[in-house]
Each structure stands twice: as structure tokens, then as C-alpha cells.
Design a protein around this nucleic acid. Structure first.
Length: 146
DNA sequence: GCCAACGTTGGC
DNA sequence: GCCAACGTTGGC
């Protein structure tokens, strides 16, 4: 899961109550569907810093709450407000994510050097999705290089 | 700041 | 349903 550290960094997450953050503001249908349809409590998450000086994996987290409606879609003063969303039929969801541990920063450049990660979604050309699945083999491999 | 690669919008 | 125009993402 990508986060801009200027918004929420791994250290910000560590400082939050229960070291948990609601993953609000996702306004992409594919990313939403991953959260809503596939992510389950206890699923592992790589916390990735994007759009910053040192993009890369900054820590490990886990899903701590199943998908639920993203409150920001109903707030007309919020930048993530969606006039087409209603409480009856919410359009956007978020999960809660809890920090497991901060790791060394594994930069995207380093990630690209491993043949084992050649098909990692985030490394594919044109991949802009903020939430992407990680294969079990990729997950294990990355754990091994931390 | 650039720009490739997407996603979304809206007229037709 | 097509597709041009526009907006966004995100590494560099």
C-alpha cells in the first residue's frame, strides 16, 4: 500500500493511537475493490513510501479492520468528498492498517534488481495503483531481504 | 519540472 | 459505445 510520507509516513503511523490508520481517500475502483473484496483482517501489508525522495518499502503492517465506508466521501468540506455517494450506497471504502514493524528503507531501485521480484505489480511499467496484491512468494522473498 | 502511462469525463 | 481531452500518478 502506497502512502506519501508527506501525508502519512511510517513514523506517523508509529505515532498514531494503536499504531493504526484508516486508509482513507482511495478513489480508484481497482484499489477499492482490492480493499473491499480481497483484504482480510490479519493480511500482511508492505507500507510503501511514494512520491518522495526515497521511494520504497518502509515497513510491515497488517489489515486490522475489514473494509467499511470511507467517511470522507460524505463530508462536503473534504477534498475526498463525492457528491454521488450516499450512506445507503457508499461508493468508497477503506480498511484500517496497523503497523507491525518499521524496516530499513528498501528502495524501488533495489527492488528492481531482484529477478525474484520481476513480476511485482508495483514494478510494472505504468503501474500507478496505490494498492496492489503481492504474491506469497514475493512476500516471502521481500521478508528475506529486510 | 518533465513526461509516460493510465483513468475519467462528457459530447456525440 | 466511441474517443478526444483532460486530470492524476509517481519515478526520475
Amino acid at each position: 500500500m502506497k502512502s506519501e510520507p508527506s501525508d502519512v509516513s511510517i513514523d506517523d503511523l508509529a505515532a498514531m493511537p494503536q499504531q493504526t490508520v484508516a486508509w482513507y481517500g482511495v478513489r480508484n475502483y481497482q484499489a477499492r475493490n482490492f480493499m473491499r473484496d480481497q483484504m482480510r483482517v490479519g493480511d500482511g501489508v508492505f507500507f510503501y513510501h511514494s512520491s518522495c525522495d526515497q521511494p520504497g518499502i518502509a515497513g510491515i503492517a497488517e489489515v486490522s479492520k475489514l473494509a467499511y465506508p470511507d467517511a470522507t466521501q460524505f463530508d462536503s468540506g473534504n477534498k475526498y468528498f463525492d457528491p454521488k455517494a450516499t450512506h445507503e450506497t457508499p461508493r468508497w471504502f477503506n480498511v484500517d492498517v496497523r503497523l507491525k514493524k518499521k524496516t530499513r528503507l528498501v528502495g524501488i531501485r533495489e527492488l528492481r534488481t531482484y529477478p525474484e521480484l520481476a513480476s511485482l505489480r508495483i514494478l510494472q511499467k505504468g503501474s500507478r495503483l496505490s494498492i496492489t496484491p503481492v504474491d506469497p512468494a514475493e512476500w516471502k522473498f521481500i521478508l528475506g531481504i529486510l
